[in-house]
Amino acid sequence: MGNEASTERVTLHGVELEVRRVGSGSTLLFLHGFQPVEPEASFLSLLGRRAAVVAPSHPGFGASTRPKDFESVYDLLNLYSAFIETLPGKVTLVGASFGGWLAAELAVRSCARIERLVLVDALGIKVGPRDVPDILDIFNTHPAKVKAATWADPNKAPDLDAMTDAQLVSRHRNWESLSLYGWHPYLHNPRLSYWLDRISVPTLVLWGAQDGIVKPAYGEAYAKRIPGARFAQIAGAGHHPELEQPDHFADHVLGFLA
């Protein structure tokens, strides 16, 4: 692709963050979901054609450290508020899945450093009745069912048998960290929905049409609560349109930037 790409270590408030940087242009901060971004993921280089993509691994994910007792979304939001201030100018904030929850929370707090917001199959709000879960319980559901719900084409799921020991160790650590941040209340903030109309920047809510972790109707409800937000679905994608349909994903995001 010819994009400049590097992985850096950034120390911020006692956390050593692993940060992948790809491409050039205006800054696009990508906050990942259940797993950190693979450095060679094609969606990064596709976005990097038009933007300077900055993709940190959350504390406790990938090679990022997680200080003792740093185990709440409150901690993550304070960290990313500080991180955004280190980036040049205003950013396009893209949050996927769990990272989408963080992105929505950050935008509710302040849009001063945010130019645009993209939520991709984002978690974080409560939509349905109290006895109907909005988000599939990925911790308490059989892994085979979680896999089927995650991918439009389960063959796109990562092959765990092909991974190195180090990759699997990292994956399990990510899983632990995710459970600390998101076990209870389960991957959402019961009060976030009330505050979504604070978001004052152009917002695109993108959804994998076959997402079984959080259904497209949840995404539509999310978009309705954000003033002026657009909702779009990506066919042939489950919970990870950025991985299953990277070209369509990049077209949507870059089109939104234009």
Binding site: D165, V169, H172, R173
Partner: peptide
């Protein structure tokens, strides 16, 4: 299980 046990847990 500690993360170090992951290879034995995940590989089919």
């Amino acid at each position: 299980a500690p993360p170090q046990a992951a290879p034995g847990l995940y590989r089919t």
